[in-house]
Computed example of a mutant assay.
Amino acid sequence: MSARKTAELSPEGIARSDRKRLAAEEGMRALADVERQAIEVRRNMARLREIREASEREKEAADAALQTASPAPAVKKRSRKTAR
């Protein structure tokens, strides 16, 4: 065996490779968690947008109904003031 092969099989080498493997696994889990949270945030934003738009549509419909139900205000003619 070469010197390199024996170094890779040493307890320090094994511990180092285990730490690298664990770090890689944790990194993948962290990225998946961040991605899942981003999806949840976008889903919540879409839900809130739908609620806001529905509320706006209801308000516009109520305003339109109020406009059609109430008579148009009478237009007053402006009186001219005489100059002194």
Rank of each mutant, 00 (worst) to 15 (best):
R78K: 13
E25T: 05
A69N: 07
R43M: 10
Q67C: 06
T82P: 09
R16A: 13
I14D: 03
M28F: 06
M1H: 10
A30I: 00
E58S: 04
E12M: 01
A54P: 00
K20Y: 12
A23M: 03
A32P: 03
S55Q: 13
A46S: 14
P73S: 08
R47M: 03
T82Y: 11
A69Q: 09
K76W: 05
S17K: 08
K5M: 05
P71T: 08
E58K: 04
E58I: 00
R42P: 02
E8S: 03
A65G: 08
I39W: 07
I51N: 04
E26A: 11
A15L: 07
A64F: 04
V34H: 10
S2G: 11
S70T: 13
A54N: 15
A64H: 09
L22I: 07
E60Y: 08
A65P: 01
I14P: 00
S17Q: 13
D18N: 12
R29C: 05
R36Q: 15
L9K: 11
T68P: 00
R36N: 13
V34L: 13
A65E: 13
S10T: 11
I51G: 01
G13E: 06
A3S: 08
P73N: 05
S70Q: 13
A54E: 15
E12F: 03
E25C: 00
A72Y: 03
R84K: 14
K81N: 10
N44D: 15
L9F: 07
E50T: 01
E8D: 09
A61D: 13
R36T: 11
V34K: 10
S55L: 06
A15T: 06
S2A: 09
E8V: 00
K77M: 03
I14Y: 10
A61P: 00
A65I: 01
A24H: 11
M28V: 07
A38M: 10
M1W: 06
G27A: 07
M45G: 07
E8Q: 08
R84S: 14
A7I: 05
S17E: 14
A64C: 01
G27F: 03
E35T: 09
K77C: 02
N44M: 09
R52K: 05
L48R: 10
A23D: 14
A74L: 12
R4P: 02
V34F: 04
A62G: 00
A69L: 05
G27N: 14
M1E: 13
A61S: 09
A74S: 07
V41W: 04
P11S: 06
R78T: 12
P73D: 11
P71I: 02
K20I: 15
L66M: 02
E35Y: 01
E8T: 00
A24G: 06
E12L: 03
M1V: 05
R4M: 08
S79K: 10
E53G: 00
R4L: 12
